[in-house]
């Protein structure tokens, strides 16, 4: 029997309050694109996975669980039929109805956001939200520093289509693509948030971490890349939120050398503050402090000249 890569219950914001959310990472055939510089999900893909194996995984994941929101992560696009057969979507939807789940969250690249699937989804009694990994609104950066393979225009088209069908749009932005300095990364994330706000219902800021066997891992091993500081995330969240935009962030591997981190001493507290803010959207939750903020300020100021990480 095939089990999901991982699944867990966590808090998720739903109509202004925190509710129980089951997150499931499904093993699939994998993303067809697989060329993003930070992509490390191929470890979670398996070309033998078909409809039955997907069903097995979801059955296993929901067993004995109580939750109001269901979040499904595949290694690629939920709407890519090569990865997730349409029959599985039907199976999932009926399962959700039977469990009275209130909301479904999935992910997709824009090229798979098409009428057929959306029509089906719009007809369901639960709310739906589709996350798109836009990463940045800057086409040059997305193309050259991330290698994402689609444009901002592609994203806008997909987002508008989703809106047309009453599906919520979540835009994923990446804090610190490779080759950007800490300061440029902050600026890019803020700029992108502004650019995206009118198309997305919610923005999720992803902080880069270093997955194994990725391009970005090679850069990191040679000291050509360092994951972002948590202070940078706080800076982005604070500034974007102050524009009245809803933005959330769930730092992965925070505090480890492969994940976003500050000075190690404050990492736990700062990551916690970010998580709290994500639920509350209250910037006061971001008020944390540590001496290392002064080092970070210098890094923000100077890494644009060094083009190389200044601090481990």
């Amino acid at each position: 029997m095939v089990k999901p890569v991982a699944s867990w219950i966590e808090k998720e914001r739903f109509h202004g309050k925190a509710v129980r959310c089951l997150t499931v990472i499904l093993r699939t055939r994998g993303c067809y694109w697989q060329r993003c510089l930070m992509c490390g999900f191929s470890y979670a893909s398996d070309s033998r996975i078909g409809l039955e194996e997907l069903k097995e995984q979801i059955d296993e994941a929901v067993r004995d669980k109580e939750f109001e929101v269901l979040k499904i992560f595949t290694s690629g696009s939920f709407f890519d039929a090569r990865e997730v057969p349409p029959e599985f979507r039907e199976y999932l939807y009926s399962l959700m109805r039977s469990m009275s789940v209130k909301k479904l969250i999935v992910e997709s690249r824009p090229e798979f956001v098409k009428d057929e699937a959306l029509k089906e989804l719009a007809s369901m009694p639960f709310e739906a939200e589709v996350g798109i990994g836009l990463e940045t609104s800057n086409d040059f950066i997305r193309e050259n520093c991330i290698n994402k393979g689609f444009t901002f225009e592609d994203f806008v088209r997909a987002a508008e289509k989703l809106k047309d069908y009453g599906v919520r749009v979540k835009a994923y932005l990446l804090l610190k693509p490779p080759f950007l300095s800490e300061g440029e990364a902050i600026e890019d994330a803020i700029r992108s948030s502004m650019d995206v706000a009118e198309y997305a219902d919610i923005i999720s800021l992803n902080l880069m971490y270093i997955p194994s066997n990725t391009y970005v891992e090679r850069l990191w091993q040679r000291n050509l890349y360092r994951p972002p500081w948590l202070w940078s995330a706080i800076e982005v969240l604070r500034q974007v939120r102050s524009e009245g935009i809803e933005i959330m962030c769930d730092p992965v591997a925070a505090g480890s050398e492969r994940g976003p981190h500050n000075c190690r001493k404050c990492d736990r507290d700062v990551a916690m503050a970010i998580k709290e803010f994500s639920l509350s959207q209250n910037v006061a939750d971001l008020d944390v402090s540590c001496d290392c903020v002064h080092i970070w300020q210098r890094v923000v100021e100077l890494e644009r000249y060094s083009r190389l990480p200044l601090v481990r």
């Binding site: 050259n144 950007l180 040679r222 050509l224 000249y305 060094s306 083009r307 190389l308």
Partner: peptide, 16 residues
């Protein structure tokens, strides 16, 4: 210094 084009990638990338 702010008029200098530093590029995005460091020279160290070249060998990789």
């Amino acid at each position: 210094v702010d008029s200098i084009d530093f590029g995005y990638a460091p020279y160290a990338l070249k060998s990789i």
